[in-house]
């Protein structure tokens, strides 16, 4: 029962990635695309944690730690480029 609910939750999160990606394709400005990328990274962190649970291996969580810490730097760089900061 609980396993089924976890799987359904992962499928719903996966649908979230697809919806954000549609905005990334459509997005009229670069800021829209950056927002979509931001949403996708957060959902991807959740998916990585789900895979660690699904494969039953705690060491996969290290990848999620690195991802959560690194992924926002790219978005900050895009933002600083847009506002002509760097």
């Amino acid at each position: 029962m609980a396993d089924l609910i976890y799987n359904i939750a992962a499928i719903i999160a996966l649908a979230g990635i697809v919806l954000s990606f549609v905005r990334l394709i459509l997005g009229p400005t670069a800021a829209d695309r950056a927002v979509a990328l931001d949403g996708m990274t957060i959902i991807a962190i959740s998916l990585i944690v789900f895979i660690a649970y699904y494969s039953n291996r705690v060491i996969y969580l290290d990848v999620a730690i690195v991802y959560g810490l690194i992924s926002f730097v790219g978005i900050v760089a895009v933002a600083r480029y847009l506002e002509r900061g760097i």
């Binding site: 990635i17 990606f21 990334l24 997005g27 670069a30 695309r33 950056a34 990328l37 996708m40 990274t41 991807a44 998916l47 990585i48 895979i51 494969s55 060491i59 996969y60 290290d62 990848v63 991802y67 992924s71 790219g74 895009v78 480029y81 847009l82």
Partner: peptide, 24 residues
Amino acid sequence: LAAIISAGVISLLASVIYLMLAAP
């Protein structure tokens, strides 16, 4: 800029897929 962001998306999803194929 859109091309750069798309390349970032490819890396993002590639890392999730590598993890799923048991290559942390």
